[in-house]
Structures are given as structure tokens and as C-alpha cells.
Design a protein around this nucleic acid. Structure first.
Lengths: 195, 195, 195, 195
DNA sequence: AATGAATGAGAGTTCATTCAT
DNA sequence: AATGAATGAACTCTCATTCAT
């Protein structure tokens, strides 16, 4: 399988760096090849075309992230604790890889609708994770009985995404993981807070 | 001032239609000119360049929207009521102009970082509106005392944005404004709900 | 109509020169544009793509040639005389435009099958001309009664084509039109000659 | 000598199949290697480069054909009979190998001028065969005394070639060898027919 | 003010050939 | 002898912008 060959990962990592440093529209295949230390043509031994690099990039990075998250979450008991782990690690992962943060929050969004649809496919795994936490919370009575899972999921994902994007747009100048507890609290009890 | 000339608005409206129907990357200047019923060169009598059309588009549409929102909100007393009006009208405005919804939620995000920074400038007016509501809520005791205004604003905007984007991605098939009360409730009391 | 604009012909004439001098595979669009004295992009205001230049080239040159031939032939009475005019002018036209001879006999044949099919469409007009001469010859008794028109046409066209190609391959060093009477005689009475 | 090794012929036969089925421009070396059941690199142990495959292909196929023709012709007495054997077998050979017919009549003609010059070298053997028949015909008085050998040879070759090409372009739908007698007659006595 | 013909820079991808194993 | 992964040069076409009319 091609994915196990070292050059596959090598090219994807090069793509992350090149896109983060040059922007999506200035990330030419030749630049990625140079950064990866291979010839232009070699790219096409591992990827169908340029778009395929970007999809694979997202699948590789996000896929492994979701797996790790899944493992961490299963260690927790309550839905609230699971949500906390999710938020903490979402922030942690992206703050540990500044290039990847730029790529996923800013650059990859400039891709065309077709690519974005495929990215959304990958994101589904993440959203299902959130859904499972919410369902458990409702079942155990931690969360309100008639919670609209879909809307709650959109709130959680929208909030995390907006928070990370703001942090990236501010050039990652402040500490992102530090915000996790407050965001967690906010999502659990809203603006009104604990009564 | 150019903005008051009829062709200025004419070209912006043409741009909304062309981008919504063809997508950002297929919205060539010549297509916009044709839709607007003017020659290609005429565009450049009213706009500095293509980017300027998009910025102006956002300013025009968002600017008038913020003004209208501001007026509606000042009719309400409590922060909660103001937030409700904000959400309702955010959803209402976009559901009343399907083309505009596609353009702002999907297509304009494909623009480059530079353009997106300028769009964020325009969005600041909206975010300040949210901030004022939140500050009032904290002052009057409606909202929790130590509410982190910035995070709460990111939650509110992130949630609304994600909700609208989902609706657009599902081809605007369901009724968006109908979701306002539930979203409002969710933002106020979180997943745990009213105690 | 685009075909009446001077640049249309200008670009086609440039293509003939560039292909004749550089060969089919070394006739880049940029070279043709330079030879025509226009920008690369201008080519695409008059032609759909590179293939379209070549098809148009053939249509323009061959089309007008067939028209001229048709007029000349109708001035003759007998089928034999018509055939003579056809051969003479076939040789004359190509020997008067050495570049065009190279392009039609050698270079355009390197094009892909798709393009060659379209070229054959244009050639049909020429072949029909030959067919009409042959039919007349049979009807008037000049030619043998049970002459196979299709085979005779293939003999005539194949002979003329092979003769011209040989002349081009020999760098057009000898006088082509001079061969017309002998070729005419040969086609009329075959190897055995007049009895 | 490499030509006697089994892989030499194996690769040439693979090339015929691949070119016939995919067309000249879609007949990549890697495809030929795959069809021949060898590695890409192996090709270069037997051929200098891609062009060399095509030249060798033509030499092998045409060379053995000319030898066979030569033998068959020497069995005949008169020039007319020899010409008949030539035509019959020219048609027969190509109709017995449909792939080869496509390759020689259509695909190989898309090659560049350089390659075509080398192909013409090989063809010389065939043309000399024709020339010998014609000379004999003139000497024995079968053919006209002042027959222009070169032109007559171009007529014969051009007619046969055009006839075969037409048959290939019509997808080899009709019986080619059946046409031999009529073509033979036509070449001998021309359009006027026997007097 | 308005036109629209003309401009020209810029990049993804293929494939014949090589060479270390 | 045989392999096949790696190489890297080369070219069409699009489209934002200009400027003579």
C-alpha cells in the first residue's frame, strides 16, 4: 500500500509546510516537491493530482487525530469529562503543530467546493464523536433531556472552530489550550452560567 | 461619490448572482459585467480591481444588515431579548436572500487571506454588536458575572455561522429561522440546560 | 463573423509558416502568436484551441482550392480534359506555396486521429469532384463502362498524393507541375499505354 | 545478435498490439513493456530508444514481407502476372493482420519526419521490387515503351496505399483481397480501359 | 462615461529514459 | 540479464486589467 511508503508522508509533510508558509494559492506542486526533496514527477507516483495531496493531507492528519481522541475519550466516564478531553486535545493538537493549524483553519478553506466536500467527509468522523458524547449526556441525565443533538453539535464545533481560527488569525500569539476550561464551561452552561 | 451611482449597486448585485450560480472561481469579471449589462472596462470605473468588488459587496450587504440589526435591538430591553432578535434576524436575512447566503457562507471563504482580513474588518461591526449585548447582560446580572466576553462572542458567532453554513450545505432545504428559539436557548443555558 | 477579421487569416498564415519551418511538434502556440505578431491570448479570441487552428487552416486553404478547381473544371468539356485541369492545378497550387505543401503532405499527417478525421471531412469535397469527373467519363463513354468509381478515385487521389509527397520529400527540388501531362496520361491509359 | 533473442520479437509484437489498440500517442513505453510482460527498463536492453522500437517493428514486418513477395514474384513470368501477385499479397498480408494494418496505415504516420525518413528507407526495398517489375514490362514490350518508371511506381504504390488506408478507415469492414483483380486491371489499363 | 479587443504571465502533469539493486 | 522507482523538461490556455476609440 502506497500510504506506508516513506515518501507518501514525506510529501504530505512538505505540503503542510509549503502551504502554511506560502498560502494555498502559492503552493505550487514544484514547491512541494522541492520541500519534500523529490522530483516533481515523483509526486505523481504517490498522488493522483494536486487535489489528492490536499485530501490525503487532511485524511492523514485528521484521521489519526480522531483515532487518538477516541481512545482518550473512552478513558473518561461522564459526558462532561469527555467533552473536556475533546476540547483540550482539539486545542492542544493544533497548538502543537502551528503549520497544520494555519493550513486547516485558513488555507484549506480556500479550496474549491469539490475539495471541501471531501474534507467534510473526513470531518464527519469528528462530528460523530461529538454526537456520541452528547447522546450519552442526554441518556445519563447530565444534559437537558430535550437537547437538540444536531444544534448542540453545531454549537460545539462552531465554537471550537471559531476559537481556533481567531487564535490563528492573531498569529497564535496567546496560549490556546489555556482557554479549554472556560470554553468547556461556556458550552455546558451557556451565557447565563450555573444557577 | 461612486457608491451612489446606480451602476455601483448594479454591479454588486450582478456579482452576488454570478458568484452564487457559478462559484467563486468561476465568477470571472467578464461574467459579472455581462450580468450587470455593462462592458468589462466599465467595472474598473467603479471598482479598483476584482477584490474591490468583493469587499464592497460585503460592506454593502453586511453594513446595511448591521444597521438594521442595531435599530431592532435597541427596541428590546434585556440582553436575552436582544440576543434573540439578533439570532432571529441573522437567520431571517440570509434565508430571505439565498444567493447572498451561498456567497457569504461558502464562496467568499475561498478568497485569499488578504481579502478575508478585510472581510473581518467589516465583521467587526457585527461582533461589537454582540459584545455590547454581552456586556449589558453581565452588568444587569442576566449573564454570569465573570463571563469571558471574547469567548462568549466566539461561541455565539461560531454557532450561528456553523448553523447557517450547515443549512446552506444542505441546499437550504429546511427552515432556518425556525431554529432560532432553540439556538437562543442553547447559547443561553448550554448543554446542561436551565436548572 | 470571426473569419472575416484580418487576424483570423493572419494567424492561419503564421501557423503555416511556423509548422513548415519547425515541424508539427515544434509548432507551439507561442511561436505562432509571435509569427502572427499578436499575443498568445489573442489566438484564443479567434480559435477554440490549438487543434482548431489546424482544422481552420485546412478548411481555409483546401476550401478555397476546391472552389477554384470547381470553377476551372466547369470550363472544360470532356472528362479527360477536366482530369487534366485537376491534376495541373493540384500540382500548381502546392508548388506555388511551398510552406503549405510541407504542411499538408508531411506535418499535418502527424496530427492525431481525431484531427485527421476532421481533415478527411474537408477532403471529401475534393474526392466528390473527382467522382463527378469519373461519372461523366463513364456516361459519355470516354471511360470504360464498368469502371469502379471508388477504386478509380482512390487510384487518382493516391497517385497525386504520392507524387506530391515524393516531391516534397525530395525538398521540392524538381518541377512538379511539369509532371502533370505524364501523370494524366498514366492515369488514363495505365501501364500498358494506348493501344 | 539481439534480434535473435526471443524478447526482441516479443516486444515488437507487443508494440503492434498496443499501438493498434491505443493509438500512436497513447502507446507509452510502459504500456508496451506491460503487454510484453517485461519491465520498462528491459526494453532498453533490446532497443536504443522508443523510436528504435518503431523502426525495428517496420523493418521486421516489412522486411520479411518483401522477402516473401520477392520469392512469390519470381515464380511468375510476365510483368503483369508479377504485378498481380504483388497486389494480391499486399492486400492479403495486411488483411490477415488487422493490428499491423492499423499500425502501418494510420498510427505510424503520426510519427515525426525523422522516423518517417527511416521508414522510407525500409520501403525502398518494396519500391525497387515494383521498379523491377515495371522495367521488365517495358523491356518485354508488355508495357508502353516510354513509360516513366518513377511515376508509374508512384501511381502503383499510391493507389495500393490509398486503397488499403480507405479500407482501414472504414474499419476493415469489407473484403480487401477481393479488390485485387480490379485494382490490377485499373493500374494496367487506366480509366479508359482496354481498347 | 463607456466600450471591448488585446494583452501576457503563470502552473499542473506526462512520460521517455536512467541506474542502483 | 532484469527490474521499476525516480527523474525533470516542456507547453497549452485562462483571465484580470488596460487603453485607444
Amino acid at each position: 500500500m502506497k500510504k506506508n511508503k516513506p515518501k507518501f508522508k514525506q510529501i504530505i509533510d512538505a505540503a503542510v509546510v509549503v502551504i502554511a508558509e506560502n498560502g494555498y494559492h502559492q503552493a505550487q506542486v514544484s514547491k512541494i516537491a522541492k520541500q519534500a526533496g523529490v522530483a516533481d514527477g515523483t509526486i505523481y507516483l504517490y498522488f493522483k493530482n494536486k487535489e489528492d495531496i490536499l485530501i490525503s493531507l487532511f485524511q492523514e492528519k485528521m484521521g489519526s487525530f480522531i483515532e487518538r481522541l477516541d481512545a482518550l475519550i473512552s478513558d473518561e466516564e461522564t459526558a462532561a469529562a469527555k467533552l473536556k478531553v475533546l476540547i483540550e486535545n482539539h486545542f492542544l493538537m493544533l497548538s502543537q503543530d502551528p503549520h497544520l493549524a494555519i493550513v486547516t483553519q485558513l488555507e484549506l478553506r480556500q479550496s474549491n467546493k469539490e475539495l471541501r466536500k471531501k474534507i467534510n467527509e473526513v470531518l464527519k468522523g469528528y462530528l460523530q464523536l461529538v454526537d456520541r458524547i452528547l447522546s450519552q449526556g442526554v441518556e445519563t441525565g447530565e444534559f437537558i433531556k430535550n437537547l437538540d443533538i444536531r444544534l448542540a453539535r453545531q454549537m460545539i464545533f462552531g465554537t471550537l472552530d471559531e476559537t481556533v481560527t481567531n487564535w490563528v488569525m492573531k498569529d497564535q500569539k496567546y496560549n490556546l489550550p489555556e482557554l479549554a476550561p472556560k470554553v468547556h464551561e461556556l458550552l455546558l452552561v451557556g451565557c447565563k452560567g450555573e444557577k
